[in-house]
Every structure is written in C-alpha cells, then in structure tokens.
Nucleic acid binder design. Structure first.
Length: 570
DNA sequence: GGGCTAATCCCCG
DNA sequence: CGGGGATTAGCCC
C-alpha cells in the first residue's frame, strides 16, 4: 500500500542501481548501528563496506524488487527517499535487527546518511508527484564518512567518477552525495584560503599603514634624505624639494655634458658649483665657451620648437643642455658683474672696465678657441625703472623690440624652455631669434639665435643673460660670425624707482671675418674695436633711462649704444 | 542572526 | 556532462 509513496522518488534511468545499492547497503548498515554500542560507527561503516556487495547482490538479485523500485521519476532526491523508505521497510526485512522503528531523530539522521531530502511524502502521493519536494531534511554525514571523505580530499580534491563511485560504495553514500561533498569541500577550501589571504592582506595593510605614519612623521623632519641637501628649518615647499632633487640630477648631467662638449670643441671645462646660486636650480661655472656640437642646432639656425622639446642627442636631453648652458652663462655673468681687479681693468678714460683676458682664462679655467678673438667690457649706470620691470621688458620679445627699435628689427621667442618658477618670471629661460640691424646701408641685417635667461638673485636683484647657441662659422655665408658669450645685465633696485644696471658685453669672433664683413663700416668710422663700442656703454644706460622715463619709443638712429649693441649681438 | 553544511540551480567549457 | 559560483534550506550555537 505504501510502496507507491515510499518509492515515489526513486530515481529513474541507469543510475538507479548505484543509489539503491548504497541505500540498501546503508539500510543494513543502519541496522548494524542499532545493534552495536554507540560510537561504533567505524565498525559499522566497515561492516557496510564489507557487506555491501554481497548484500546488494543478494537483495537486488531479485529483479522483481528492482522493478518494483522503479517508479516514475520525480525531482532529484529519489534515491534518498528510497533509502529512507528502505530503512522503514528494513524494519521488516532487515536481516540484522528488527527494532529499527524505535530511533531518535539523530539516529534517523545518521541512518539516513546519504538519503532523504524529502519529507511529508508519505501519504500524499499525488501532491508529491505534482510538485517536486524542495524542502530538505536536516542531515549530516557521519563523522566516519566525513573522516574518509576528508582523507580522500587530502589526496585528491578532484576525484574522478571511478573514485567517487568507489567512495560512495565504501561509505554507503550516493555518488551524487560524494560529488556534492567534494564540490562543497572545494568551495569551503576556497573560502578558507580567501579568508587566510584576507587576513594576510589585512596584516600587510596594517604594516603599510604604520609605515606610512612613520614616513609622515619623518616628513615633518626637515632633513632631506633624497637630495642630500642641507637640513632646513621650517616647511620646505614641494617645489623647492623637487628643485633640489632636480639640482642633484642636473649636476650629474652637467658632468656628462661638459665631457661631451669638451670632446667636440677641444675645450676643457673645470666646473665647480657655486653654493650661492645653487639654491634655485643649481648652477656651475666654466669658461663660458660652451657651444653645441657643429650641427646641434640643425643648419646653424635655431631649433624648431617642436624638436627642442624632446630631442635627445647622444643621450642628452637638449632641454637640459640648454638649461645648463643658461645656468653657466648666468653664473659667469654674475661673476663678471661683481668682480673687480684684476679681472677688470679700468679703461683709459675711466668710464668703463675692460676684461683682462689672461685673468679671465685663469678665473674661469677657460681656453680660448683657437683663431677666435674675444672682447668684453663692463659699465654701470642708473635707470629710472625698477629691476623687475626691466627684466620683464627684456624677457618679452615684443617689448624688447619696442624698447630698442633701432637695432632690433624683429624679435621672437622661438621656444619657452621654462616659464619661470612659482608663477613668477624668476628662472624663465627662452630661446630667442632676432634680426638685428645697424641702421646703415653698409651693414646687412643679422639673424641671431640665443638663449635668454633671467634669475632673481635676491630681493630687488635680478640678472638677465644672453648667450649665443650658434658656433662661429668658418664660412660666413649669412651664418653667425660673432658669438655672444655670456652677456647681459645685473639690475639692482636702488630707491625712488631707480635701478643700478651693470652691463657686461662679451663676444668672440673671427677677426678676419669681422674685418672683411665690416670693412665698409670700419671705413665709415664705426669700427668694431672694443674701445669704440665700449665707450658707448655708459650712454646705453643713459639712453635706456631716457627711453624708459619718457615712455616713448625712440627712433633715434644716431643713438651710439644701439649701433654698438647691434654689433655686439651679431 | 550568523555560521556551517548538504543540496540545488544555473552557466559555461 | 562535470565543475564552479550563487543560492537555498535546515540546523546549531
């Protein structure tokens, strides 16, 4: 009468055998459990293991029973139902024990190990047939089964079908259950690993956090371990910190650059660092005869801006080279502006200083390029403009052109290498191209490329330096025949809007070329001799003062300074 | 309520 | 078809 309901969930298809087998085996096993004293499960399992095959064989030798168990498939937990039912049935048919009906729930659980997932099936056949039962019965595998499964898992977390089958037989579990168990065990293992990993990561995180805290603490200490710079009290701005690091890097690069240029030009450059100027971007000092390799600028002209950004020659970033050149020039300019005798000797008229070339070469460890003549002079004057305004004017090609319309025919800033630091013009470095003229039909317009660099050395003290980047050419053919060595001005605020300007002009040239080119000019009385153009330096300042104070663009073609400057720059 | 575990569902290779 | 992820269901603490 109950057979239908009891086996309502018996599995269909070919897998039936195994399930029934384990179920029935387990039924026998359960019976044995009841006989044995509590805790003798291992023996029971062993007994099941031992007895299963013969029992199976004996029980299912009856094809009639097998067929009887074959019921329409419903849901997935037929085997379990069959086993549970088998237990019940076993009460009558069990060969081990007849008292199976008196069992605790726990015992039932054990007995159903590997069996029932359904409940409430008995009696409600039709309902059960319509709706596959979903409610699971609480069930745990026995410790012995778990133990076996665990040991198997240790050896092989992924047992194949054969292994699972063998295991299921031995443990009286369905192959499905074995499969589930391994699947869940792998999942469990995975989550355990993840937890472990998380714990490690958390540990690592804590460690890094602590490290971070200590670094933050160390950051409050002004001692800089990165740049090797001196410890500074108070807050060091991020920018300055970077500059110090950059400074250290540039020093290294300078060594390489000097060696390289020395090879090209046959000069030797002994550079030493000037600590007073080092603070900003780092500087150095050499002879100032710093020139690029013959083809550095590409045909002797200025480099197209786009090439200057990233071109690397012989492993050296051009930008860095230009910066080094500017810093070198600035350093030399400042030194020239500040030095007295014996570097400078008073001119005969006492109005200007003339450079002592021997002393210059000693001071700057410089060797004069063979075949080139150099000239330098210095003078000072007061102008009615504050230092910053003058520097800004000089750094602006348009305003510069407006200020010196007579000798600057056209000027452009071809590339801004540095716009300055911290939003100021301090440290601005630019590559400029200018057409310089002498307002005389005898002298052609000269096209020059040079670096212009400005720097604030103290409150109210600025300097602007120019330096040619084109080498003196053997063949004049329009190319520069005069190089402007570090030249420019140091401006210092005085009072009442006045500034003291010290102008230094320094150039090297091929004497023969100059005389050939400027022969007409020389004949006209505007020679290139240093005495002649140095004499105009004082008037240059006066002229500048007049220009600035009147705020009127001068077109005075007769201004001797402009003529002089034109010659100097070409 | 959260953890554990057996089992289910579904997707993907 | 099996593995794996997500989820469910049931029990225990």
């Amino acid at each position: 009468m109950n057979f239908g309901s009891l086996f309502d969930n018996t599995p269909g298809g070919g897998s039936t055998g195994a399930r029934l087998l384990s179920g029935l085996s387990y039924g026998n096993h359960t019976a044995a459990t009841n006989v044995l004293p509590g805790g003798a499960m291992a023996q029971a399992a062993a007994a099941a293991s031992l007895f299963s095959p013969p029992l199976t064989k004996s029980v299912y030798a009856s094809s009639g029973l097998s067929l009887a168990l074959e019921q329409p498939e419903r849901g997935t937990n037929r085997g379990e139902a069959s086993m549970r039912n088998n237990n019940n049935v076993g009460g009558g048919g069990d060969t081990f024990d007849g008292s199976v009906n008196r069992r605790s729930r726990e015992e039932e659980h054990e007995s159903r190990s590997g069996s029932d997932n359904v409940e409430g099936i008995s009696g409600e056949d039709q309902d059960a047939a319509d709706k596959p039962p979903r409610k699971k019965r609480y069930h745990r595998h026995t410790p012995q089964q778990i133990q076996e499964l665990e040991s198997m898992f240790k050896e092989c977390p992924h047992p194949d079908e054969k292994q699972r089958l063998e295991l299921s037989k031995r443990l009286c579990l369905e192959t499905r259950q074995v499969k589930f168990w391994f699947q869940n065990r792998r999942t469990q293992m995975k989550t355990q690993l993840e937890r472990h990993e998380n714990a490690l990561l958390r540990q690592e995180n804590d460690k890094l956090r602590a490290e971070n805290m200590s670094i933050r603490e160390a950051m409050r200490n002004p001692i800089c371990t990165n740049c090797g710079g001196p410890a500074m009290l108070g807050d060091v701005s991020l920018e300055e910190h970077h500059l110090r690091i950059e400074n250290a890097r540039l020093k290294d690069e300078l060594d390489r650059v000097c060696n390289l240029t020395g090879k090209f030009l046959g000069h030797h450059h002994n550079h030493h660092y000037n600590s007073s100027l080092e603070l900003a971007v780092g500087t150095n000092n050499n002879g100032g005869h710093f020139a690029f390799p013959p083809d550095f600028g590409g045909g002797g002209g200025c480099l197209p801006p786009q090439q200057q950004q990233s071109t690397v020659i012989n492993g050296i970033d051009q930008k860095s080279v230009l910066l080094e050149l500017a810093l070198t020039a600035m350093d030399e300019l400042v030194k020239l502006a500040q030095s007295e005798e014996p570097l400078w000797v008073k001119s005969l008229d006492g109005e200007r200083d003339e450079l002592n070339q021997d002393e210059y070469m000693r001071t700057f460890s410089s060797t004069k390029p063979t075949g080139l003549a150099t000239e330098a002079s210095r003078t000072s004057g007061m102008v009615i403009i504050n230092s910053l305004a003058l520097v800004e004017t000089l750094m602006d090609s348009n305003r510069w052109t407006e200020m010196f319309p007579c000798n600057v025919a056209r000027a452009t800033t071809t590339d801004v290498i540095s716009g300055g630091m911290a939003g100021t013009i301090n440290g601005a470095l630019q590559l400029m191209n200018a057409e310089l003229q002498v307002l005389s039909p005898l002298v052609p317009v000269r096209n020059v490329n040079f670096l212009r660099f400005c720097k604030q050395h103290a409150e109210g003290v600025w300097a602007v330096v120019d330096v040619s980047i084109d080498p003196v050419r053997e063949n004049s053919g329009g190319a520069p025949v005069i190089r402007r060595l570090p030249s420019g001005c140091v401006v210092q605020d005085v009072s009442n809007g006045y500034s003291k300007v010290t102008w230094v002009e320094h150039a090297e040239y091929d004497e023969n070329q100059i005389h050939q080119l400027y022969r007409p000019l020389l004949r006209s009385g505007l020679g290139f001799g240093s005495q002649r153009w140095l004499a105009t330096l004082q008037r240059q300042c006066e002229c500048l003062a007049i220009l600035i104070s009147s705020s009127v663009t001068s077109h005075d073609n007769t201004c001797p300074f402009l003529t002089h400057l034109s010659l100097c720059l070409t």
